[in-house]
Design a protein around this nucleic acid. Structure first.
Lengths: 143, 143
DNA sequence: TATTGTTATACTCTATAACTATA
DNA sequence: TATAGTTATAGAGTATAACAATA
């Protein structure tokens, strides 16, 4: 077969493989977080606020790849649970800084354990070095 | 700081990075495929049927990580465009084999070029060897 | 009884536009 | 004029349950 209409294959398509793997991890994490009443998206917001104190909602959205309008609903949920606060920005009254609470840190620590379990299951086929390699490659793609 | 409530970080979370990268690639591909009237999902169905002749809808769904009920709508769309046929299974009258048409192969070839462009843009930070390495690692995760 | 394809349905996710209050 | 947050809304994606035809 020497025609040029070869196209691509499932197991060589990086985009397909990335979204297939990512989708699985999100579904599994959602299932684990169900007992918390949270979803994977809430977990990433907690992770971002635990890591960076006092992000604006705009910054949160950019960091996590979430639309600003969606950030509102996520922060609403977390605030209702007492996991984050919305503090006023000292210099700009339009901006609200999202700050994680102590209770939010507790929730994040517990959710992290579940997330680690999910990752370990999904990435079980890789050893430590390969896993670090994967994370490095992904980091360079998304940055 | 020696407390145990460290949790995880955004740039070390494989699940987060995978879904972030996968989401970007899908969005970019959807944008490119818009002129075709197709979405990324349709493209993966074409890819699967181009690669494996005569898959049942059940098999298609498993291969692509799509719910059987969603496969119905995708195949409907592609059949309406003349890109696939639903052939009867020779031995099982419940089953319908999804077969790509010549016109479907043409569409797939063109869509593949767009998908390659999208991948090249998204994975531009990686050289050929690193990209192959990434695909290999992903393949082991999803298999 | 179990399975394939299908329909209906509901819920989540994503994206856009419009509004408000501020800058 | 432009930006941060918000609201409303529509479209896409995902998941479940139920049904008909067939195994």
């Amino acid at each position: 077969m020497t025609t040029s209409k070869k196209g691509r294959t499932l197991d060589g398509d990086a985009g397909f493989l990335l979204s297939l793997a990512g989708g699985r991890l999100i579904r599994n994490l959602n299932r684990e977080l169900e007992s918390f009443g949270l979803r994977a998206r809430h977990y990433t917001v907690l992770m971002a606020t635990a890591e960076h104190g006092g992000l604006s909602q705009r910054e949160l959205g950019e960091l996590l790849g979430i639309d600003p309008s969606a950030v509102v609903a996520l922060v609403d949920d977390l605030q209702r649970e007492g996991y984050v606060r919305r503090d006023p920005h000292p210099d700009d009254r339009r901006t609200r800084l999202v700050v994680i609470t102590d209770s939010g840190r507790d929730a994040f620590a517990k959710a992290s354990e579940l997330a680690t379990k999910v990752d370990d299951e999904a990435l079980g086929a890789l050893d430590e070095g390969e896993r670090a390699q994967l994370v490095q490659l992904l980091r360079r793609i998304v940055s």
